[in-house]
Design a protein around this nucleic acid. Structure first.
Lengths: 191, 191
DNA sequence: TTCTAAAATGAACAAATATTCATTAAAATT
DNA sequence: AATTTTAATGAATATTTGTTCATTTTAGAA
């Protein structure tokens, strides 16, 4: 008896991501996907009931994984500034090293495939930074005349742009630039 | 003889935008598009050779139009701070009042339809703000230890997030909030 | 080695979608 | 009013793409 190769589902996911990154969600067809993953089209249907479920499973998986990365290495006992930088860097690194995923998540978000409750999951990704901002206000590091959400947007928007430009090669980041970038974010929200 | 109704091309564009906004580029089919525009599928082919050219023409048109809006009302003779605010507000307003278009431009940018030289056009949209930043440095309003592109990204990213959240209803903007937002942008880049 | 059950295949089929074209309707010209 | 020219139509056709399934291959069990 032959065992179902669980690794193959990941292979399909990987191929799907690569395709979407290069051609957008509209460019994904089952035959192209199969070719990229190095298998027959029929094989895709052994692992996923349909194209729709394939994409949904991919979305769910990536959402789960990326959320987990944001708070990695953060410790409430460390001083505020250090903690904030940690989370800030986590977001930036995530968007750079998992750029394909980020692009897919956004594309899926605006595709005919998305369902109502999946939309909510996206919101939950904000939690880590919001938490940070609240702490920063309590400890009097962050300006209090502006609400959490706006401060969050100021940081996130910048990070997103930085990462996208870095990945596309238009504005490549290095240690020094990242340091400056964090400084700018800091100037924007500090007390 | 009946004259080709040039207005009909705009009607098609409008319907296309609405469809893309609701279902993403992947959700656009010629029959849906025709239905939305209130005409027969064949009629689409009187105005556009193919689906591909239809989408390309739409992209080109919107790109042209939006670029023109960014510098509107800007006058080099007015003081720097006022000029910057003007352009900043132009970007924000553009992304809010023409949100469908912005979303489409980004989706098209990452679709199988995009060509190499169309990619370059997108870059040209940055010019207005870059110009502002250079002037700001010359007149000693803006910090000089950070390059233009990064300062640009800090502003643009924030504006983009603000507009998107406003349109989606998650974080609705009003006069006061917009004022604060500009202030935050200013804190980030000022000397 | 032989047997068995599941995985993998890919051509065949079904469904969706882009495009064409013979025909009709409408406007301009005579 | 008759004629001509072009726009508009939408059913028919062509093409692309998702899905199925009879058959083959493969890996472990007997």
């Amino acid at each position: 008896m032959r065992t179902k190769d669980t690794n193959k589902a990941d292979l399909i996911f990987k191929a799907g991501l690569a395709l979407i990154t290069k051609e957008g969600i509209a460019g994904v067809t089952m035959s192209k996907l199969a070719a990229k993953a190095g298998m027959a089209t029929g094989t895709l249907y052994i692992y996923f009931r349909s194209k729709e479920t394939l994409l949904r499973k991919l979305y769910e998986k990536l959402n789960r994984e990326s959320s987990a990365r944001f708070m990695k290495g953060y410790d409430t006992r460390q001083p505020f500034a250090a903690g904030l930088k940690r989370v800030w860097l986590n977001y930036l690194n995530h968007r750079i090293t998992h750029h394909d995923e980020s692009v897919f998540l956004e594309q899926y978000y605006r595709s005919p495939y998305i369902s109502a409750d999946e939309l909510q999951i996206a919101e939950s990704m904000k939690a880590p930074v919001h938490q940070m901002i609240r702490r920063g206000k309590e400890e009097q590091f962050i300006r209090e005349d502006v609400d959490d959400e706006m401060l969050f947007l100021a940081m996130l928007g910048f990070i997103r742009e930085l990462a996208d430009e870095h990945v596309s090669g238009v504005y490549v980041l290095d240690e020094a630039r990242i340091e400056k970038a964090f400084q700018i974010s800091w100037e924007a929200i500090k007390r």
